[in-house]
Design a protein around this nucleic acid. Sequence first.
DNA 1: TGTTGAGTTAAAGTTAACTTCAAGTTGTAT
DNA 2: ATACAACTTGAAGTTAACTTTAACTCAACA
Lengths: 134, 134
Amino acid sequence: MTYTITDLSKMFNLPASTIRYYEKIGLLENVEHQGSYRRIFNDSHVDRLNAVECFKKALLPLDEIKLFFTYEKDMEKNSEKILEMMKNQEVKTLESMEALQAGLTHLQKKIRFYTLVSEAVKNKTPMPRWEDVN
Amino acid sequence: MTYTITDLSKMFNLPASTIRYYEKIGLLENVEHQGSYRRIFNDSHVDRLNAVECFKKALLPLDEIKLFFTYEKDMEKNSEKILEMMKNQEVKTLESMEALQAGLTHLQKKIRFYTLVSEAVKNKTPMPRWEDVN
DNA sequence: TGTTGAGTTAAAGTTAACTTCAAGTTGTAT
DNA sequence: ATACAACTTGAAGTTAACTTTAACTCAACA
């Protein structure tokens, strides 16, 4: 199967400029350029973009993602390096999750508190204290 | 209690330049400047920085954090606005959590796969297939 | 008195990941 | 033939959240 840049743009909900950018920095390789005319992508590029999106969700930076793909070309030789990279990122991702969870908890506490404040204002009852939501 | 910039720097594990920056953009208010000499912070600044760090963990941008503090000055009047802001951010934070969780799952699948690859290389046994880790 | 160390300023620089721009090219529809 | 839409390029611009730089100022200590 072949795809235009607009096909991929719609498939991945990414602006065409981003897809061009990914090619430019080497995340997408061997893209056919019909003369100096249009790009033609194939299923390998779809797979790549899928992988890129997954790694992006894990907060892996683009240059690391690129490095992963170069390692992956000789995975027998590079499996240890890949493993190290993935495990390092796992730690970072878990740390981000913890921070995010803490942030969410804080947010939800604020929501509980200001819900009480809103009610107190509406009903002209006494203001809540911050301790009330602990 | 009063604090120097280095005290806060150590307390919050933030570079002094970041604390100055926070003052500059209005996240820290009413900081005493002993002549054109040193900053003197107090417990209200410690509270502020604690709140800032919590909101940062929830991925709230600094300008929104600042807005929150201005709303908070008249919380009876602004409780609805604060509530809206916090609820919006809660949605975004939850979305980030989901993406992060998906990313982590992807990462851990790669880890399982390349662990098998490493073992296969070491033991000179056949390479695993990607389906083996599903 | 001179040096040191902690702090000050405004302004410029950094980073990642895009995004926008201006000018040009190509295939197709009228 | 001409207009149009979709695509191309390299280069410059954008954003948030800092960080760095260079030149300066105190207070305290030897």
